[in-house]
Amino acid sequence: MSQLRPELLLQAYAIGVFPMAESHDDARTFFVDPEKRGVLPLNTFHVSRSLRKEVKRRRFDIRCDTNFKAVLEGCAEPRDERPDTWINDEIFKLYMSLHEMGYGHSVECWHDGKLVGGLYGVALGAAFFGESMFSREPNASKVALVHLVARLKASGFTLLDSQFITDHLAQFGAVEIPRQSYRDQLAEAIKIPAEFYSGFDDWPFVEELLQSRSQTS
């Protein structure tokens, strides 16, 4: 039985810490509070010209929260560039509970009836904590991220937490900010009521985002 409760996990998010495990097979779960925090500023989110074209092709069927478990499984599966993962059994169960409680959300890329990529995270107030993403087809996770940002902006979210900075996220404009600056932004964000948009048709939001990004790129 899990030692951590989903309610405790929500409290942890509210003060700026998040859970991890050393590996998929390690049963120990610990909380992380980085000195520098990765965030993706929603108002300066960068979409390259090539990705803009990919998104406009609408090659993927974008859905939200239709198979959260499968997205979790996709994020936890080993890949060549990442043979192990931090999602152990306890963390898996915790996020499934958060999804059932209405806090955990997935953005999914489907193609020919198959889930080929996506991401998941946690919404609390107007803060969204991005947890992990995966791709089984080129650009699937990138397209999912564009749709996520469009949904967050349309829903009134003010903070997209990426935890750490990777080369993958840096291309979208992710930045590192000091721990206290992050906590200040978080404290304000969780006070704001925002409801994550889980509807299937988010294309008007995506078009608006791409238009605004093309004017600033």
Rank of each mutant, 00 (worst) to 15 (best):
16 G>Q: 03
18 F>Q: 08
132 S>I: 08
112 D>P: 00
215 Q>Y: 07
131 E>L: 08
46 H>V: 09
202 D>V: 13
83 P>L: 14
205 F>W: 11
108 E>L: 02
29 T>V: 15
89 D>E: 06
170 A>E: 14
189 A>P: 12
128 F>D: 02
72 L>G: 02
42 L>V: 13
80 D>F: 12
48 S>V: 06
10 L>T: 02
11 Q>M: 10
88 N>S: 08
25 D>A: 12
58 R>S: 10
149 V>T: 10
206 V>N: 04
39 V>G: 01
151 R>G: 03
74 G>D: 00
182 Y>K: 03
50 S>E: 09
175 V>T: 12
4 L>M: 11
131 E>T: 10
138 P>A: 14
86 W>F: 12
195 E>W: 08
188 E>V: 05
161 D>E: 11
68 F>Q: 05
199 G>A: 11
158 T>D: 08
2 S>K: 12
132 S>C: 12
109 C>V: 00
11 Q>V: 05
142 K>R: 15
105 H>Q: 07
32 V>T: 11
9 L>Y: 03
116 V>D: 05
215 Q>I: 08
146 V>F: 04
31 F>V: 07
108 E>I: 05
194 A>G: 14
128 F>E: 06
10 L>A: 04
97 S>W: 09
74 G>E: 03
199 G>E: 12
38 G>P: 07
173 G>W: 10
